[in-house]
Every structure is written in C-alpha cells, then in structure tokens.
Design a protein around this nucleic acid. Structure first.
Lengths: 210, 210
DNA sequence: TAGATTGTTAATCGATTAACAATC
DNA sequence: TAGATTGTTAATCGATTAACAATC
C-alpha cells in the first residue's frame, strides 16, 4: 500500500472496473486476471494492476483477483460500501431522466431529494420523490448532511445553485449546465457537458484517422 | 500551421473555448487574450495558445485574438461551420431530454431523427420529431449520410444499436449506456456515463484534499 | 515442478507549463 | 518607444507501458 496522491485518471477508472466486475460476477466468474479485465475494457493490464495496487494488494500471484473481494474493496475505496445520499436541483427533462434512472440503481448511491424553482413543479412527484422549493435546499443539505449535488438547471441559474450548495456544505457537484462553475478549492466539480461532447465528435467525423 | 496528430485533450477543449468566446461576444468583447481566456476557464494561457496554434496563427502579437474571427476558425476546425446532422436512438426519458435540449441549440448541429424499439412510442412526437422504428435506422443513416449517432437505449440493447449504426456508416457515437461498446478502429466512441461520474465523486467526498 | 500472474521499478511516452524572441 | 501578447521551443511534470522478480 502506497501513500501517494492518487490521480483523477485512476479514480475515474475505478467505477469502470466495478461495473465490469459486477457483470463478470453475474456471469459466474469467481476470479479474474488483469489480462482479462484489460481485454474487456481495452486497457493495458499493467495499468489495471497499478491502479489497484495504489490501494492495497488485492490479487494473488499466479491466480489473479477474486471477483467478490475486489468488488468489495473498490466499493470501500469509493465509499460506496455505505449509503451515499445525493440531491438534485432542476426538475426539467434532464433532471427527471436522471432521477428516473436512479430508481433502478441497486447500489448505495441514491438521489433522495429533488428541488426546483418553478412553482408549478413544486409538490409534484418525480420518480417517487416530491419536488421541493429551492428555498429549502440549504436547510435540507445541512440537516441531512448531504455531500453530493447534481445540477440540471439552465446555464444562467447554475452558479447560483452551486453557491447555495457550497454554502450549505456540499463537497462534490455533478454539473450538467454548460458553464464553468466557480467554487472553492475543496469542492470537486465534475462537468457533464453533452453539447461539448458532440461538438468534439464533429471534429473526428470529418478528420478520420487523426 | 503544424501537421502533427492532434491529441484528444486538445480537441475536447475546443468546444469549451468556443462557448466562452460566444459568451464574450454577447458581452461585447471584440478581442481577447489567452490570459483572459485562461482566467475564465482556469486553464494555463500557454496551453490555450498552444492548442490554437496547432491549427494556425489566429492571434495578433501584442493584441490577442479577435473574438469573431476565432469563433469562426474554431467552428471550421470542428466542422461546425456547416450543418451536422445527428440521429438519436432510444426515446426514453434521457433520449427525450437530449432531444428537447437540442431544439434550443442555435448551432449547426441538429438531431434530425429519433428511433425507438417500443411499438407504443413509434409515431409519437418528441420535440417536434416523430419517433421512427429501429428497422428504419440503417436506411435513414445511409440515405441521409449521417455521421454521428447518440445512443440512449438500455445497456443490454446498446451494442446491437451500435452495430447497426456502424454497419450503416456512422463514424462517431455518443454513448450514454453504461457498457463498453465494441466498434471498429475508425469509429469514435465517446462515453457519457453518469453513474460512473457520480461514483468517482463519492471517492473525493470522503477523501478530501487528496 | 511449470505456467501464470501479481506488485513494482524502470523506461517511455505524452501533455502541460515556462520562457522568450518576434512583433503589434 | 514601451508595454502587451503571440507562437514556439525547451523544460518539466505526470501518466502509461514494459519488464521482471516474487510467488501462487
């Protein structure tokens, strides 16, 4: 077990490993090698071993990794071995789609409250959750000790929501609004920018082989 | 103007520049320096200059970049100076949210057809588009020379849709299904994996400062 | 034992940042 | 001219990959 700072790139691969491992488990695999994982994911096996080795010695030489054990370990690393509660702000179509998806997730991460600004939406039901007014956002976050927030409001409203989240003590934001959020150093922001993704794909379409 | 292979990281920043530049244009800026851009985006100014210099000499020493001109140039680089048509498969909540969003986009990229497998959905209207049956997907792609596809079907159906897209000649896919798609080398796949994003955020929440 | 596979160090590769001459 | 800022080379930093001893 090392004690270096672990890079973003490593952390972002862990959920990918986790998903593949769950899949392999369902298929009946008891054990798996970095070679096999690499083949499935198109990753270099050395990279996979190195990624895992940052957190401990999870494998067995000559054998590989025990699927169940590795799932358990990665769950622990990501803090997904305990309930993780999330709030979502912006009950438009995208917010509803994400909430809806969340219902079917069978992991420990759950959206437990949805907030919106629009009077007509407040009180209505989305995926089993009653939409709450933004006024209650900060109180809800502190009261329930929420650490992760999802922003699915329009671009012009995103910074204000982020500010509210931050002041209430949230430490990570998944932002779907196409803006660069200003947040303090200690708050992690991950941007999910569909338009930007599409725009960069357009480059490759007409510049093939580059 | 260089003639190197340009890295993914560079291409993925271009849409970000583009968006900020449009914003600055709306604010009345005529000219902007890499310093200013960097400050807004939290990027190193040298990186911005280098990114742009891969494609040409767009700036003026001592002055900076002409906002209008740079927008035009990045649009050209990304091939967004011409209509780019996109198909979307999977008219569930997420597919609808994305289609809906697309309506308000005022760029040259447009979703022009939506496909779904479910009989009840076919023929109904989503954001001004009539949902078509999957059977028609391949014909539509070839007929209209579509190059980009968006996949918003459930995980188990994603590979099949990708295969159909590829065989019909698509060259880039934005995949929202939480699976690793198998595609030929020449097909670009970009994954938008909300669950994976959230899972990696969970790491930072309880490992702050790392 | 022989074959397989890990964990880890060293080598390589690539991306970011600093520095600065050119020049507006 | 003096100050500002680009484009680009060189230096640095970091991430990926190769190689291999340890060992199941």
């Amino acid at each position: 077990m090392k004690r270096e700072k672990i890079s973003d790139a490593v952390i972002r691969r862990l959920p990918v490993y986790l998903r593949l491992l769950s899949h392999l488990k369902r298929l009946g695999f008891r054990t798996v090698s970095s070679q096999q994982l690499g083949k499935e994911l198109d990753f270099n096996p050395a990279q996979i071993r190195k990624d895992l080795a940052y957190f401990g010695e999870f494998g067995r030489k000559g054998i590989g990794y025990d699927v169940d054990y590795l799932i358990k370990k990665i769950d622990q690393i990501l803090n997904l071995d305990q309930p993780v509660h999330v709030v979502l702000v912006g009950a438009g179509k995208l917010g509803q789609a994400i909430s809806h998806y969340n219902v079917y997730q069978k992991d420990n991460m759950k959206i437990i409250a949805i907030f919106d600004h629009t009077k007509e939406r407040i009180g209505t039901n989305v995926s089993g959750l009653t939409i709450r007014p933004i006024d209650e956002l900060q109180h809800f976050i502190t009261e329930n000790n929420i650490r992760i927030g999802i922003i699915t409001v329009p671009d012009y409203a995103a910074q204000e929501i982020a500010d509210k989240m931050v002041s209430a003590g949230i430490s990570a934001i998944l932002n779907f609004a196409p803006v660069v959020l200003r947040t303090p150093e200690h708050v992690r922001v991950s941007n999910a920018d569909v338009t930007a993704e599409l725009h960069s794909l357009a480059y490759y379409v007409f510049n093939q082989g580059k």
